[in-house]
């Protein structure tokens, strides 16, 4: 097990290297000459050359990539072209709303989607099952910003139950924090719930048709215990895998959700950076999100043994 964990952790290194290489190439081929931008309009050609040399921009690709990677490993993601602040600092300022939104959505989606999938599998073929599946198709089809506007229109503008936009940090109290988070969470959860409910239903149907479930039933185990103890535990591995893979949807969706609800998180940071062509910031955010995604899926892989002791590495 330990050997497997070590091997699995080591296997993420080449993947992260490829991500880093890609993200670095982005800046490398990006239009615009950073040296010329820093030097300003009045600078002579010699000045620009001097700045370029001092920044190491005249070095070959491999050397620059190596240096860049070295700085990243030391926690330096570069400096924003627009604000002149370190990218790590800008990210640190914006990470709380994004993480809050993603964690809230993750919890909310799991709480909704798993019972939905379990009940759909149990009542397979009935109108409950069909209803869940139709909801799932809608969840996949209605884009997150459409759901967002719809929710905000109904619950914030018409009914006036919740704030329309914005974000309140947790330090200012739990209810203000939560009330701002409810609508974005519902909007972002749509696709994720659809994804998890569907895989839960499929796996549960497979597990429920197995012999040991029949045995448990014959033995007189209650329906509730069969579904949530005997069956769900054995259906956990595919579900957890999809939960991990779905984090990509969550990350992509967060960018949009933050735009709709004016949440000052990493998504807004990305959108602003794109509009300003602030490449170091774009790089930093892409790198951070990808790293997060890889880590989540690493954790999922390592969790397998917990859910299914038969899996030994």
């Amino acid at each position: 097990m330990l050997a497997y964990a070590v091997r699995r952790i080591l296997a993420t290194i080449p993947v992260m290297l490829i991500v880093a290489l890609f993200v670095f190439s982005l800046l490398y081929i990006a239009p615009g000459d950073p040296a010329a931008i820093i030097a300003g309009d009045q600078a002579s050609v010699a000045d620009v050359e001097r700045i370029r040399a001092s920044l190491g921009l005249d070095q070959p690709f491999v050397v620059r990539f190596g240096g860049w990677l070295w700085r990243i490993l030391h926690g330096d993601l570069g400096t924003s072209i627009f604000t002149n602040l370190p990218v790590t600092q800008m990210i640190a300022q914006r990470i709380e709303p994004t993480l809050s939104l993603m964690i809230a959505t993750l919890i909310f989606s799991l709480v909704c989607a798993i019972p939905m999938g379990v009940i759909a599998a149990w009542k397979h073929g009935t109108w409950i099952d069909r209803g869940v599946m139709i909801l799932a198709v809608f969840g996949f089809s209605v884009p997150v910003f459409v759901v967002g506007y719809l929710l905000a229109y109904v619950f914030a503008l018409q009914l006036n139950w919740l704030p329309v936009q914005g974000f309140t940090p947790l330090s200012r109290g739990f209810w203000p924090f939560l009330s701002n988070l409810i609508l974005p969470t519902l909007a972002l959860g749509g696709v994720y719930i659809a994804l998890i409910a569907r895989i839960t239903r499929a796996t549960m149907m497979e597990v429920l048709s197995q012999d040991y479930i029949r045995t448990a039933r014959a033995k007189g185990v209650g329906q509730h215990a069969i579904l949530f103890v005997h069956a769900l535990k054995n259906a956990a591995v595919p579900i957890v895998t999809v939960v991990g893979l779905g984090v990509a949807l969550l990350i992509g969706g967060a960018v949009v959700t933050e735009s709709v609800f004016a949440i000052p998180g990493l998504g807004r940071l990305t959108v602003d950076a794109i509009l300003r062509r602030d490449y170091p910031v774009i790089q930093g955010v892409v790198l951070l999100f990808s790293f997060m995604y890889v880590l989540v899926n690493l954790a999922v892989d390592l969790l397998y043994t917990l859910f299914d002791p038969r899996i030994r590495y």
């Binding site: 080449p14 993947v15 992260m16 290297l17 490829i18 991500v19 290489l21 890609f22 993200v23 982005l26 081929i29 990006a30 239009p31 984090v247 990509a248 949807l249 990350i251 992509g252 969706g253 960018v255 949009v256 990305t270 950076a273 794109i274 062509r277 490449y279 774009i282 955010v285 892409v286 999100f289 990808s290 995604y293 890889v294 899926n297």
Partner: peptide
Amino acid sequence: MRVMDGLMSIPPILLAIALMAL
């Protein structure tokens, strides 16, 4: 496959955003 794994570990919307920024 390693290259594909690398590309797949960048969330697709983010990857498209990064390319569009260029």
